[in-house]
Simulated scan of single mutants.
Amino acid sequence: MRVYHVSPAHAMRRNYMTLSYTGRVETVIIKLDMAVNITPVYLTAVVKTIEMHHETLDEVGPGDNVGFSIKGVDYRDIQRGFVCSDANNDPAQEVASFIAQIVVFNYPNQICQGFTPVIDCHTAHVACQFVELISKVCRRTGKVIEDTPKCLKAGESGIVKLVPTKPMCVEKFSDYPALGRFAIRDMAQNIGVGIVIDVEKRAPLPSRGTAGKSKR
């Protein structure tokens, strides 16, 4: 299960924090009292309420744009671009790097190893470095034209490896399309687009939060 477009609001009640979010459900189902992870900060919380179109619901499914509240985390730990996922079913993880196929638009410069543009993926806005140009491929067929090219120019397509400069959560396009397609931005404009074809995930850190703790 993945939820993105995380936009938090908060309200203090007694000695705990209840946070309200809006988001789009990508897969599976959100239910009341479900334990969820917030990635890439590895926070764990519990879903307390779910609302859609001003109607309170017990569960929602893929494609729904919903509001939901969680208990067990501090609103200051949550930022735009984070991903909420089922803590007990393939939870999302921070990526150390990812492999992508990109297409370069009408960009006056060349994309070479070391280039660090901003990647816009779902609601994340993170600078990522091109650490390796793996191959240049045909835009129409995907056939490899050249291995380890020195650069990619306008109109060309290639397979590349990128490393985020800040914690980021992306997924393979084949698994979660909305979390696996991105735009490449430089000089305040889109200079290319891409899809994620493989990810290298960081080893998960111990989750923080109150989900799973016994009630007092």
Rank of each mutant, 00 (worst) to 15 (best):
S69E: 00
A154P: 01
V199R: 15
E94N: 01
R2I: 06
K213E: 12
G63S: 12
V41T: 12
S69C: 00
C151I: 00
S135P: 11
K172G: 07
F105S: 08
K201F: 07
P117I: 03
A188Y: 12
V6E: 01
Q129D: 03
K215F: 12
P206L: 06
Q79K: 10
P167Q: 06
V193P: 04
H125G: 06
D64I: 08
G155E: 06
I99V: 13
V103S: 06
S97V: 03
K166F: 09
E171I: 11
I184A: 07
M1V: 08
F130K: 06
G61A: 14
P62T: 11
G209M: 04
G192I: 09
F130M: 05
D58T: 12
K153W: 00
S207Y: 15
E94K: 07
A87M: 08
V41K: 13
S7T: 15
S7N: 15
S174L: 02
R14V: 11
G72Q: 02
V6K: 07
V196A: 11
Y4P: 13
K172Q: 12
T44Q: 12
D90Y: 15
L162I: 05
H122K: 13
P62Q: 13
S157Q: 01
E146P: 11
H10T: 10
T18A: 09
T39V: 10
L179E: 14
D58V: 13
K172H: 09
E55R: 13
F130L: 13
D77T: 07
H53F: 07
P204R: 02
A87C: 11
T148E: 05
A9T: 15
I145G: 09
S20N: 09
Q79D: 04
K161Q: 09
Y42T: 00
I30M: 15
Q101I: 03
A92E: 02
N190F: 13
F115V: 08
V73R: 04
I111F: 08
D90M: 15
V28K: 15
V73L: 01
A87G: 04
D33M: 12
I30A: 11
A178L: 14
I119H: 05
D64W: 10
M187N: 04
F82P: 02
E51Y: 00
A11K: 14
R14F: 15
G61Q: 14
R139W: 03
Y107S: 04
E171T: 13
S97R: 05
I197W: 09
G72P: 00
M34P: 05
I30G: 11
I195N: 01
V73Q: 04
P117G: 04
N106I: 01
H53G: 07
D90A: 14
V73T: 04
P8L: 05
C128D: 01
K166M: 11
V95F: 14
Q110V: 10
P149C: 06
